Amino acid sequence: MASAVATAPAAAPAGSRRRIPPWAWALPPVAVLGLVFLYPLALVVQQSFQPDTGGTSAQAYGDVFASTAFRDALGTTVWLAVGSTAGCLVLGFALALVIAFVPFPGGKAVARFIDVFLSFPSFLITLALLFLYGSVGIANGLWTDATGAAAGPFRFLTTPWGVLLAEITYFTPFVMRPLLAAFSGIETAQLEVASSLGARPARIVRQVILPEALPALAAGGSLVLVLCLNEFGIVLFTGAKGVTTLPMLVYSKAILESDYPGACVVAVVNVLISVGLYGLYRVVSRRAGA
C-alpha cells in the first residue's frame, strides 16, 4: 500500500486547471440576441433591397423617398414626437414636484401607482380617452342629454391634437419616474436654507431643484422621444384621420398595399432614426455626467 501511495500522481495545482475564457460566457447571450433580434432585422434590410420583380435593387428606397406619403409621415412623426416629449417634460416635472415636495394624503400611493402605470399598454389609455371624449363617449353623452343636441362638441380625439393628448397622457409617467428618483436625493435642508434666506418657491425650483433634475429630465425625455417615434397603438386606436406616422405607414404598405419592400424601407428609416437619437442621447448624457 505504501508503494501505491508513493506512485499516485500529485494533484494539479489550482492555478493550472483549465478555465473557461471570459469571452465564452458572452457567446450564449450574443447568440440569442442575434437569433431573436439581429437576424429578423437583417431580413428586413435584405427585403428592402429585393423588389417584387426579383434581383437586388435600391429602387424601393428611391420610390419611397420620392413619395409624398413618406415625407408627410416623417414630418407628422417628428412633430408628434417632439410635441409629446415637450408636453411630457413640462407636465411630468410639475406633477413630480407636487408629489415629491408638497405633502398631501395619499402621496406615497400616487408615487407607487406611477410604477404600476408604466406597465399599462398604450391602447388601454387610448380606449379610456375614447370612453371619455369619443363621439359616443361620456362627455358628449352628458352634453347631448343636457342640451338635446344631436351630437356633442368633443371631436378632437380624431385629430392630431387627440393623438398628442393621448401620447402625453400615456408617456408622462416615463418622465416622472426618474424625476421622483432624482428628487428623493435632494436634501430638504437645502430647500429650508434657501427658504430662510428669502428665496421664493419659483426661485428655489429654478436654482436648487432644476439643476439636480436635469440629468433625469434628459433621461426621461430621450426615452419618451424614442418611444413616441415608434408608437403605433395610440395612433391606430384613436382613429385619427389624416394622421399617418412612420409605423402606420409600415402597416399600411405591408398589410393594405402588400408593398413589402416599401414597408421594409420605411421600417429601416424608422430604426435608423431611433438608433441615431439613442446614440446622440448617450453622447450628451456622458458629457453632462448623467
Score class of each variant (00 low, 15 high):
Ala2Arg: 13
Ala2Phe: 11
Val5Thr: 10
Ala10Cys: 00
Ala11Gln: 12
Pro13Met: 00
Pro13Ala: 12
Gly15Met: 09
Arg17Asn: 07
Arg17Val: 11
Arg18Trp: 12
Ile20Leu: 15
Ile20Cys: 10
Ala24Asn: 10
Ala26Cys: 05
Leu27Gln: 05
Pro29Met: 10
Val30Ala: 15
Ala31Pro: 00
Leu33Ser: 13
Gly34Tyr: 09
Leu35Val: 11
Leu35Trp: 14
Tyr39Leu: 15
Gln47Thr: 12
Gln50Val: 11
Gly55Leu: 07
Thr56Ile: 13
Thr56Trp: 15
Asp63Ser: 13
Asp63Thr: 13
Phe70Thr: 05
Gly75Ala: 12
Thr77Ile: 04
Leu80Asp: 02
Ala81Cys: 07
Val82Thr: 08
Ala86Glu: 05
Gly87Tyr: 03
Val90Glu: 01
Val90Gln: 04
Leu91Glu: 00
Phe101Tyr: 14
Pro103Lys: 08
Gly106Trp: 00
Val110Tyr: 06
Arg112Lys: 11
Phe113Asp: 02
Val116Ser: 10
Phe120Arg: 06
Phe120Gln: 09
Pro121Gln: 07
Ile125Gln: 02
Leu127Gln: 01
Leu129Cys: 11
Leu130Glu: 03
Phe131Ile: 13
Gly137Trp: 05
Asn140Glu: 09
Leu142Lys: 08
Trp143His: 05
Ala151Gly: 00
Phe156Leu: 10
Phe156Glu: 03
Leu157Trp: 03
Leu157Arg: 04
Leu157Asp: 03
Thr159Met: 06
Pro160Asp: 06
Pro160Ser: 09
Ala166Gln: 05
Ala166Val: 07
Glu167Asn: 11
Thr169Leu: 08
Thr172Pro: 01
Pro173Ala: 07
Phe174Trp: 12
Met176Lys: 04
Arg177Tyr: 03
Leu179Pro: 03
Leu180Met: 10
Ala181Cys: 02
Ser184Trp: 06
Glu187Lys: 13
Glu187Arg: 14
Val193Ser: 14
Gly198Lys: 09
Ile204Cys: 09
Gln207Trp: 09
Val208Thr: 10
Ile209Val: 15
Leu210His: 09
Ala213Leu: 02
Leu214Lys: 13
Pro215Thr: 08
Ala216Asp: 02
Ala218Arg: 01
Val224Leu: 05
Val224Cys: 06
Cys228Met: 08
Asn230Gly: 13
Thr238Asn: 12
Thr238Arg: 07
Leu246Ile: 07
Pro247Phe: 04
Leu249Tyr: 02
Ser252Lys: 12
Lys253Gln: 12
Ile255Ser: 14
Ile255Leu: 15
Leu256Phe: 14
Val271Leu: 15
Ile273Met: 12
Ile273Pro: 00
Gly276Asn: 08
Tyr278Ala: 06
Tyr278Asp: 00
Tyr281Ile: 00
Ala290Leu: 04
